[in-house]
Design a protein around this nucleic acid. Structure first.
Lengths: 141, 141
DNA sequence: CCGAATCCAACACGATACTG
DNA sequence: CAGTATCGTGTTGGATTCGG
């Protein structure tokens, strides 16, 4: 069994869900990816991930810091400057993450193809041939 | 770099996000875990994952089917019977997933410890000593 | 420059009721 | 047995504004 059911049923927060809740959000993996290249400043991260909002970047970094995956260093200069870098724990997460990313890149086309097949199969089943449409009584709303 | 930025910026849906959106939801990994043990009927899956609602189980299975990770077989008997099983694509995803799960199990304590440290550090900074509380001018609301 | 606070829309999820 | 339909709710994330 993939997941340790006993731990899960004890309700003491399934470790898998705990981890997936984080890496499953929209930006965490992208931020980890940037930090893999070394220490980065907040503004550098923003520019590197153009469509992340300030709010989400700050939130994502705080979560990563709280989980001990990222180290945050504040330099009380003017203007202020904050550096972020992976901890050892953070770097250790990158290893299995790489496996998942490799799978995603390697099988994304297969997944998209499956979705197209599924979508067309669905309309074929859900949408009757045109000759029958006029008699369709199910209301659109 | 962990994530293929070029693909990401082309906006043609980053494969990583596409995969994480799915395995990041509440039930997908749990369902995959059950199906790893072999073919399962709908009702068996429900009993195996006690706190999943009928709605979420059906939805999760439909997503997995659409993505080509799970094969759905309907037997038009009375009462009806539907079998679910992993496809080859689904089984191939389980491999990297296992790595992530191993990390989660192996480092969950470290993450929880980091969170406790972070939480206490936060209250220490946010909540001034009692002697100063009376003079605190920042309104609670 | 870094980030907190607020407001708001979209959606994931659960509970319940109903169907073939 | 195996779902779908509907409703209500909490959470996620984006836009904007303010502060140190």
């Amino acid at each position: 069994m993939l997941v340790d059911r006993a731990t899960y049923e004890l309700q003491e927060l399934c470790p898998i869900r705990d981890v997936l809740d984080r890496i499953g959000d929209r930006w965490t993996v992208l931020v980890l990816s940037e930090l893999e290249g070394g220490t980065r400043r907040f503004s550098v991260l923003r520019r590197a991930i153009p469509d992340i909002s300030q709010r989400m970047l700050a939130q994502t970094l705080r979560h990563l810091e709280a989980d001990g995956l990222v180290l945050r260093t504040v330099y009380p200069t003017i203007p202020p400057r904050v550096d972020y870098e992976l901890t050892d724990l953070g770097r250790s997460l990158i290893v299995p993450l790489r496996g998942l990313i490799a799978w995603a890149n390697g099988h994304h086309e297969a997944v998209k193809a499956a979705r197209r097949r599924y979508a067309t199969a669905q309309e074929a089943g859900a949408a009757p041939p045109e000759s029958a449409r006029a008699a369709d009584v199910t209301p659109a709303q």
